[in-house]
Amino acid sequence: MSSKAASSAGPLLSRLPVVVAFEARAFLYSRAMVVGQLLVEPLAYLAFLAAGLQGWSTQVDLGAGSVSYLTFVFPGVLALQAVRALGRMIARATVDRRWGLLALKLLFGTHPLAYVLGMVIIPMLAFAAQALVAAPFAILLGARMTLTGLLGAVVLGALAVAFWCAVALLVTAGIRSYQQRDLLIALSLLPLTFAAPTFYPLASAPAYLQALSRVNPLTYQVTAMRDALVGNPLSVAAGVTLLLSLVGLALATLVVSRAELLPSEH
């Protein structure tokens, strides 16, 4: 005997386009956020932080050769944007859970995998748009990159976004209030961003930061983007980045499939 009256069975990814379509609508809901946070922010980092630091450190040694500080820091700025997807996805997924929308979507036959993929696709595309808008500005300031190098970095950065979004979906399963959500976002972003070679090479960092960076996924993601940007897209770091994203998405799918649909019930 079934436990429910309504039928919810559906093909694996049949609702994926629908999830993506509504995430796109929700994304565009706040146009000020789209323009300000997503497009202006990376330009501001490049103009006010990276360009300023370039005068302090003109060349950075990558092992296989040295690059200008702006070429070094451009993937770092992109990585910062990738990790910020974590906060935005926590906010979005909390609305879905807190307001019963996840329950509604799953009840109507959305497979958890379609839900997870649908939730991460728009942030990945937004990241790609950010990178493609920021790249000409970075070149203007003095960064050097090829088109294929940039595209490789964008693909790996988008994978990083998928990973952080998956982490957000995992974390959201345990969030019971907006206070918890805001605290988590505030506490996680800063150490994640700076315990990785985003704005400076790790060789010059203290030992504890170097140790922390080794267990920070962002280290591998920014390294993979940086390697791709200088013409080596198939690095070990790229493999780690891909693996992290796949594992993250798989775990997020598992957690969503087992999620309590009515967390307020007791």
Binding site: M1, S2, S3, K4, A5, A6, S8, A103, L107, F108
Partner: peptide, 20 residues
Amino acid sequence: LCGLLDPSEGGVAAPPGLRL
């Protein structure tokens, strides 16, 4: 009845394909 909760005992038998 929706399927938002799993029963602790008993169940519901419904015609297949009902739109909720």
